[in-house]
Design a binder for these strands. Structure first.
Lengths: 344, 344
DNA sequence: TTGAAAGCGCTAACAT
DNA sequence: ATGTTAGCGCTTTCAA
């Protein structure tokens, strides 16, 4: 039994006694082809299970109809949601999507960018790996005028004709979280943060500080715990805070996992949440609604971020390469108040 | 400023005063090209930022070097892990990966399969949408001898020259979970399950029943709660069970989310876990280690499933189309005993 | 309204 | 060791 070759457009044409061009036009619903012919072509196409070869069409047209997506990973709540938003919006705009993961590794990020370029994607959506410090691989992209949209984790200050960005207003999210804690009566608020070279952490930290200041509270250096925001780190961070001469009465954590870690330590010490220590996390991970108490958190509107990012890309793709890139979009976060911080 | 066209292989050849074929061979490290020439070519390629056009190469070679992946969604713990395993193993075997989501919708599944076929993928990895009942779209794939590997949610009985499968031994996982509960002293064990037309649920249910039987316990129809295994469903299911004349003393839930729902109901009723009611879930979601008490669960070795699936596919791709598909692989689950079921 | 011819960028016989 | 030629499957002038 030998492999049945796929029916090509040429096969179709032969079967119909037509030229390839006519068949091509018929399938594309070109106005200059008679309805009768279109009918015949469509029927025969169905009969022979004709499937167009995208590769050939893309090569000929110089358009792959594909967008590239590069994310650090697809675990947790945030990235899967964003990717889903991207997939939906891209499909709506008639694009396919090629998804790659950098696994938080700068080298893999560079490789994947090359991969996407070689696959002739028409535009790229990226969220940076946490280890990326050099951005040369993106220059290559923008030099070829392939539009680029950074989302969430962006290269700050990287502006260009074909570069845009979509971010969350992390500052506002943090500001809202901390203001809320203050309003609940907390006066000594600690902060768990990740490495400050990443825009998201830098801005959340700034939001934390600004909220303190605007409410007349002092910024206390020893209440800031910088680490990797893992579960164990959160637990350790809380141990550390409890050992201080003047422990805090609340913690704003820049992610949810560390908040759970903190929660575990608090329970081990027999402390009550939120009475003895209030907690607010960031990202609205699924588990924040499942712990006890449930954890207040800042929702990032992940799905919207994905959709917005594609919209930015599509705008650039549509633009007659005349006008520059659309202005970066800043999305508004939403504070979800749950039991871990509700004192009143 | 006009768009700089990408440097093609032909451009490279011209710049070097060589023919396209020589350049092509040099870049492919063909043995019949002199080292000197290879050097020159490589250097010029770097200089002109030459990037090969995969589309053209794929069209010419009739090989896209791409595998297609179709999953119901990429939320939760399981699918992202599997996809990650797939990505890693595929890259190791020299393939790119195109990922699509069916969003649990049979129609989108069919569309995506077509999409992948049109993109000329060399093989496809699929986990079925829960609504898929008709499998015609896969016939089209196998008729063209594009190898297909189903994982986790498979089409049972669909065997063929170019079709294989990788599944978890769901029966064994369920059997272990229920046996464990019995060993902890539980005698009236309920079961939360999803729709039984899906192999995973059917097999877990069978494992549940067989464990009961093998330990001399009676199977009680009213202790089986069939629904969609969401959080609210689990809560409702538990309310239902508590309302029975003879409530159970344990629940084996076919997923973790419903187990958490059950837990919430139990807490609301002031019942103790595991003393009054023991719980075991399925999937080892991240949150099972974060709730209180932590939830015992069955780990699916998701990452391995992804890698194994790719290995199956690669085997079929390599086979001289002579011998049939490799035999389906059944992976062993691992029961993780946590606090929700540890009575001794 | 249809067909003929050229070519997208690459590779693989088949020369030389 | 290198070049010449042809063609993957499709679209798009241009011509009829």
């Amino acid at each position: 039994m030998k492999t049945p070759r796929r029916t090509s457009l040429t096969d179709l044409a032969k079967a119909l006694g037509l030229s390839a061009s006519t068949v091509s036009r018929a399938l594309a619903d070109h106005p200059e082809v008679s309805e009768a012919t279109k009918q015949r072509v469509r029927q025969m196409a169905a009969e022979l299970h004709y499937q167009p070869n995208q590769l050939a069409a893309a090569l000929r047209k110089g358009r792959s109809n594909t967008l590239g997506v590069l994310v650090p990973h697809i675990t947790g709540h945030f990235f899967p949601e964003v990717v889903n938003g991207i997939a939906i919006e891209a499909s709506k705009a008639g694009y396919n999507v090629m998804i790659c993961q950098s696994n938080e590794d700068a080298l893999q990020e560079r490789r994947n960018i090359e991969l996407l370029m070689n696959a002739q994607v028409e535009g790229i959506l990226v969220s940076l790996a946490s280890t990326t410090q050099d951005f040369g691989h993106f220059d290559a992209v923008s030099q070829l005028d392939v539009p680029l949209v950074f989302f969430d984790r962006i290269v700050e200050g990287m502006e260009g004709h074909h570069i845009s960005a979509v971010v969350l207003d992390d500052h506002a999210g943090a500001y809202a979280a901390v203001s809320h804690l203050i309003e609940q009566g907390c006066r000594r608020i600690a902060h768990f943060t990740g490495p400050l070279h990443l825009n998201i952490h830098k801005n959340r930290h700034q939001g934390y500080m600004d909220a303190l200041r605007d409410h007349g509270l002092e910024f206390v250096e020893e209440l800031v715990y910088i680490d990797d925001l893992q579960l164990a780190t959160g637990a350790r961070g809380m141990e550390h805070l409890l050992g201080l001469a003047q422990p805090p009465d609340a913690v704003f954590s820049s992610n949810d996992l560390a908040a759970v870690g903190a929660m575990q330590t608090l329970k081990a010490h027999g402390l009550r949440i939120p009475q003895d220590m209030a907690l607010v996390g960031f990202s609205n991970e699924a588990f924040t609604a499942l712990t006890e108490p449930t954890i207040s958190s800042v929702d990032q509107g992940s799905h919207d971020m994905g959709r917005t990012a594609v919209q930015q890309l599509v705008k650039m793709l549509a633009a007659d390469s005349a006008d520059g890139a659309p202005r970066p979009v800043v999305l508004k976060p939403r504070l979800l108040i749950r039991d871990s911080s509700r004192r009143k």
